[in-house]
Amino acid sequence: MIFQSIKKGIDVDMDNDYKYTIMKKESLSDSIFLMDIKAPRVSKHCYPGQFIIVKMDDKGERIPLTICDYNRNDGTVTIVFQAIGSSTKRMAEYEVGEAFQDFTGPLGHRSELIDMPKEELSKKKILFVAGGVGAAPVYPQVKWLKEHGYDVDCIIGARNKDLVILEDRIRKCVKDLYVCTDDGSYGFKGNVTEYIKELVHNQNEEYDLIVAIGPMIMMKFVCIVTKELGIKTIVSMNPVMVDGTGMCGACRLTVGDQTKFACVDGPEFDGHLVNFDEAMKRSQMYKSEEGRMLLSQEEGDTHHHPGCECHES
């Protein structure tokens, strides 16, 4: 009879008031934090390449963050975030034992590498390029590939030594790891695009595929270089989002000649087709708005005064 199917899997009661507890917190640098969040349903279904949305409390905004790792046995999901604006700074103040009100996912498609036939994937020579916090989304991909017996290389790039994160964890999962910093405080002095050229031109490395994840400006320049080199490049886009389920269109991008919603069609796309200039402009949209918000908190409410010129900065 149909009603007798066994109930397995989720054993927590997640009705209505379920909260998402912080099980672990680690600082990876002054401003970058790692957290393990108890979220059994997400943990059970997520894969590398996907992201989650966290909402801290009643008043919080919906913040998209890539899944950095997961432990299906413990029912946890690992996130890594950089405290750069008002929301992420507020999030950094949360401690182990406290909980987020909402945590939803997994969102977006998993990395296409996971669905690639074994024969095809094992023939590919892949280079990962992680810029800054981009190391967080790169880590689960190289980890998955390692666990499934594939060898890949990786470049981690950051502004300075302090911002190089997850180096040890990634090192364990890749064949060759290269680190570069803009100021030369660690590893190669220069940016990741210079290092890609160095590998291809001077060290005779041949890659079939590059997966580049980091700030949009980095992905843009990586794509310019890899297009010249004729190497297919996958990027992970992080535009402004609201719902993350395809309902608002805030996350739209131009890919080829089509408009795509990064949250449901992505977040990974063929980097050579992405219109980065448009995407970078769009990602600036709320920067000044948020600045206004901080200002109004500091100086009292100057909010929504009709003549305000806030978004023209």
């Binding site: 507020r90 719902d243 708005e289 929504h304 978004h311």
Partner: peptide, 19 residues
């Protein structure tokens, strides 16, 4: 959604809106 669900019209909420 920004205005209703996320209550962006109220300055006490984090979500921004471009009016």
């Amino acid at each position: 959604t920004r205005s209703n669900l996320m209550k962006a019209f109220d300055v006490n909420y984090d979500t921004p809106i471009i009016a």
